[in-house]
Design a protein around this nucleic acid. Structure first.
Lengths: 167, 167
DNA sequence: ATCCCACTTGCGACTGTGTCGCATATATCT
DNA sequence: AGATATATGCGACACAGTCGCAAGTGGGAT
């Protein structure tokens, strides 16, 4: 029903300026890329991209479904999953598997790897270059092409490691 | 029936006779350790340790439940999960999170890290030393204590990478 | 501006993995 | 053998993700 947003930014509500423009930029870039690929621009897709553009945090599919339902109440869970998958295919979104199994999604604007604390479940973003050595070793020794950042490295964050022994 | 459908079994040890004694050794060692810790020795626990001792492959909880039911038909799914967890706590068993979310279990006799192919889902065991550099970097730069091998490194195995582009 | 159709969506049902509460059974200590 | 804390069996539940199908709609064609 509602027309897709035009490439020119259309701010809905004025809030924190900086983050808002940052998110708006990322959003319009993403929508433009979608259009360039010939994929349809739908309300559900725009809403999901909005949710992802507005934050640098890592959102689960459920988080996204909640956020999207604030904008487009009729969007179904299944649509969120399918849309996320197609956005991944389009190269706009990446998902990372965390330890417990559920995946988190983020825009591909800044590729990075992830460390997750097994106790407090917090996530630390680390540069992909940190895994460069491992990546080349795996390729040389096993012919294995590492997809950096597709699964989180598990362990204990600093804070939890310090109190770690008193379980 | 009880056979795991794991795509790859680690092609290390000779099977049949050799594996049999090898498994028996590992089994009695594990049971001894359980006893030493004061944990009760039950049919379910022995059956689960038998299943794990008999192979070097990576078994899912479901694989184990099937294998165990060949030995002790009355063992319930929930018991398998609870027992595996207590074996992990006891330090006899380790579990690894694969990409899709489900975990696989193996004895802790030979610690190692895992690479999993996202396409064919095969698992490659790699020595933990390969991650030593990353591990120390993470500790120095972020205070993060990497638990090597707790989550699989995802990517494409050699075979799948070669045909990778023709999706 | 309208039409048309393949692509998307909404919906509900379904699968698979893992957890929980509770009554019962049993491994181990005495 | 008896007592008792622990482990088990069982069914129900929770959660993440998927599927089939009918209905809706985005966007190029007319």
């Amino acid at each position: 029903m509602a027309a897709a947003k035009s490439p020119t930014k259309t701010p809905t509500k004025t809030q924190a300026q900086g983050a808002q423009t940052y998110g708006a930029e990322r959003l319009s870039a993403a929508v433009g890329e979608l259009r360039a690929q010939g994929t349809r621009i739908t309300d559900a897709r725009v809403a999901i991209l909005e949710a992802l553009s507005a934050t640098d945090a890592h959102l689960s599919a459920d988080d996204i479904a909640h956020a999207v339902n604030g904008l487009q109440p009729r969007v179904h869970r299944a649509t969120v999953y399918r849309t996320l998958e197609s956005l991944v295919t389009a190269g706009l979104v990446a998902h990372t598997h965390l330890g417990h199994g559920n995946a988190v999604y983020h825009l591909t604007t800044v590729p990075h790897a992830h460390c997750q604390c097994q106790r407090c479940e917090s996530i630390i973003d680390v540069p992909r270059t940190l895994l460069r050595g491992v990546s080349s070793r795996l390729l040389e020794d096993y012919g294995f092409n590492l997809d950096t950042g597709h699964s989180a490295l598990l362990g204990l964050c600093k804070r939890c490691a310090e109190v770690g022994d008193m379980r």
